[in-house]
Design a binder for these strands. Structure first.
Length: 431
RNA sequence: UCCGCGAUAGCUCAAUGGUAGAGCAUGCGGCUGUUAACCGCAGGGUUGCAGGUUCGAGUCCUGCUCGCGGAGCCA
């Protein structure tokens, strides 16, 4: 049998249907009663009038508690006053399960209380909207790369060594081989993939044991990391801006209802179209100085610095050619100026900060080996990576996009933790 | 790790050092168009923990625990 979902009601106006779902809220006005059902695809109000149904059915309304499971049968009617445009004139109602007293009431709650009940909080309309946008972001990213002939290459979660600093690694025992570490980035494996397939993307969870307690950090987050052989920094920026345009426009088009529910002002999102402004790190420093910020050349941009720079633009801005000292060992130096790396960060507007970090990679064997030694990285763990510069090394570039930061920005959230179903933070491992 | 803020009813929050309160939730009653409905009644408290000051501490002091925000680091 084909089940009717709330989001399909516009297709069956005037018909009798049976809906399966949970009670979101109910109101009574004596002889006419209203109940709001949610079924995962949407919300709809059922109307029960005394006299229109049997006394038994009318009485079942009183038994229903918030989040009780039930079915309701009735006629679908267009209703201008309803947020979804349709209501159900109920003729029958079946109780499937009476819920215990539900802890999340329609009034406000604190974040910690809700996070302890994240498994239930997901049922709320706001969380529902956010996670549907997340789905759209992931779906549109895949569409974008799949449509351009990229191959998905999954990187391992267990890795033998650090990609960046070792202080931020989660360590775990690994049989007789000593320690394994949860990956901080699939990038090095993405580079191997690019040399095999030309253009690839890695998509998966990454882990950072940073003791960060801010609204912009999780210990476990998802990244998409494209890597393309023969691309230089400029090609890399072309790819990043095209992808951002596709993702944001896709959300505006297909998740308009969710963004409206989130009360997101989409004016700035409408602007996300290529080309995006590109400025050098030097120009960013000038902007900071003009705004009276005492910023020293050579430092990385802090959170407030990023906000000041991005406020100069009405769409995301790409900042490229950072001081090599503050960037990762695998980034290629600019042949025109060895003090800077061929790196790019994309800063989202409205204070959301860095959503993309990328670079052209060092493709010269000797330069890369020297950089590994400078950073005191264990050479043996990187021997396979050096192989990529022994056998047919070519210029290549890629970047990483943080999924949660992107979702957070598109939805206009004030904290990253709502952008993932079950967030992992320094002081939260449950539920 | 450092800096700042906080912890009172199931939830969100009030309460000059002087009787511990409201809204929501829950239970009961009322209402034929409600939209976080509304109206009436009722039950509901070891004020995070341990000390101290005081005639008297939710309130002031000390320590601890937990939470929140920020810095550093990063996507």
């Amino acid at each position: 049998m084909s089940r009717i979902y709330i989001e399909q009601l516009h297709e069956v106006a005037g018909q009798q249907v049976t809906l399966h779902g949970w009670l979101y809220n109910k109101r009574s006005s004596g002889k006419i009663r209203f109940l709001v059902m949610r079924d995962g695809t949407g919300f709809v109000q059922g109307v029960i009038a005394k006299g229109a149904v049997s006394e038994e059915v009318f009485a079942r309304f009183d038994e229903l508690t918030q989040e009780s499971a039930f079915t309701m049968t009735g006629t679908v009617r267009a209703e201008k006053r309803s947020p979804g445009g349709f209501e159900l004139d109920v003729t029958d109602l079946t109780i499937l399960h009476i819920a215990h007293e539900y802890p999340i009431t329609p009034k406000e709650h604190g974040t910690d209380f809700l996070m302890d009940r994240r498994h239930l909080w997901l049922r709320s309309s706001r969380q529902h909207a956010i996670l549907r946008v997340r789905h759209q972001v992931i779906k549109s990213i895949r569409e974008f790369f799949d449509g351009r002939g990229f191959t998905l290459v999954d990187a391992p979660i267990f890795t033998p060594a650090a990609c960046e600093g070792t202080s931020t690694l989660f360590e775990t025992k690994y049989f007789d081989l000593g320690s394994a570490y949860l990956t901080q980035s699939g990038q090095l494996y993405g580079e191997a993939g690019a040399m095999a397939f030309g253009k690839v993307y890695v998509f998966g969870p990454t882990f950072r044991a940073e003791k960060s307690k801010t609204r912009r950090h999780l210990t476990e987050f998802w990244m998409v990391e494209p890597e393309v052989a023969f691309n230089d920094l400029s090609d890399n920026m072309d790819l990043a801006e095209a992808m951002l345009e596709h993702v944001v426009q896709s959300c505006l088009k297909d998740r308009a209802a969710e963004l409206k529910l989130l009360e997101r002002n989409t004016a700035m999102l409408e602007n996300v179209k290529a080309p995006l402004p590109r400025i050098t790190y030097d120009e960013a420093v000038e902007i900071l100085h003009k705004n009276g910020i005492a910023f020293e050349w050579g430092n990385d941009l802090g959170g407030t610095d990023e906000t000041v720079v991005s406020q100069q633009f009405d769409r995301p801005v790409m900042v490229h050619r950072y001081p090599a000292e503050v960037k990762a060992f695998y980034m290629k130096r600019d042949p025109q100026n060895p003090k800077v790396a061929l790196a790019v960060d994309v800063l989202a507007p409205e204070g959301y900060g860095e959503i993309i970090g990328g670079s052209q990679r060092e493709d010269d064997f000797d330069a890369l080996l020297g950089r590994i030694k400078e950073h005191n990285l264990p050479q043996s763990a990187f021997d396979w990576y050096l192989d990529l510069r022994r056998y047919g090394s070519v210029p290549h570039a890629g970047f990483g996009l943080g999924i949660e930061r992107t979702v957070s920005w598109i939805c206009g959230l004030d904290h990253l933790r709502e952008a993932i179903p079950f967030p992992r933070m320094i002081y939260r491992l449950t539920p």
